[in-house]
Nucleic acid binder design. Structure first.
Lengths: 110, 110
DNA sequence: GTTTAAAGTACGCAATTAGCGAATTACATA
DNA sequence: TATGTAATTCGCTAATTGCGTACTTTAAAC
């Protein structure tokens, strides 16, 4: 298992290996090792990488973990519409809307 | 950084260290090391742990990673209402509902 | 209270591996 | 071609993993 996404993420930012290593506070050869698959980061380094590139550890590890999330309990996730965060009121409104929609679907099916 | 959640997750399932190690195909002392913080899993083992306990690697690593997610682009996340997965139609309906709500709020503010 | 089996903890050893620096190679651009 | 930056590779050392084994604790049965 290699960290295949690293190279892509770094290039999207137009950073050299040295740039990236400097931001992480590690040696260039160390970071280069992560990208090439020659070495692996410690957990601390993995988390620094995820923070730096704004993604999840699961993503870096290539784990496509599918999650179910109840609309009323989003935990750490902030939902947006048109890039604007949803308020509590908007969420409960949307939930009510969906329930009504379903109700109508069911009645129509009879 | 220790994997503090492991013990909790295991106990929720009422498994012994041996049970858990068997499910993972590793030695009891190895798994016990993960819980105690004496040893750390490899990435492969970390992913097995996340799979076994049905959670994310970020969660196991204690990384509370806050994510913004556009309602129309949920990626790996399946949204539910009343435990039932949202359809495309329900999502676009909810988005339309939210836009209208916002529109009305704005007009009211004038 | 004693016995016994399972659960949990701790550690030595062998083998592997991370991280670094240094050296080498590739790639621009003047 | 010359020159500076980027990328790759590798030897060395220190640190770490995973396992087996042994030890301690817990709890249930008698």
């Amino acid at each position: 298992m290699n960290l295949d996404r690293l190279s892509e993420l770094r290039k999207n930012k137009n950073w050299s290996l040295q740039d990236t290593a400097d931001r992480l506070g590690i040696a260039k050869s160390t970071y280069a090792g992560y990208e090439s698959g020659y070495r692996r980061p410690s957990f601390e380094a993995l988390i620094m990488l995820a923070d730096l590139f704004g993604t999840s550890c699961d993503d870096l590890l290539g784990r496509h973990y599918e999650k179910k999330m109840e609309l009323t309990e989003q935990g750490n996730t902030k939902l947006t519409v048109d890039q604007r965060e949803l308020t509590e009121k908007e969420i409960s409104g949307a939930v009510a809307f969906i329930r009504v929609t379903r109700q109508m679907e069911e009645e129509q099916a009879l």
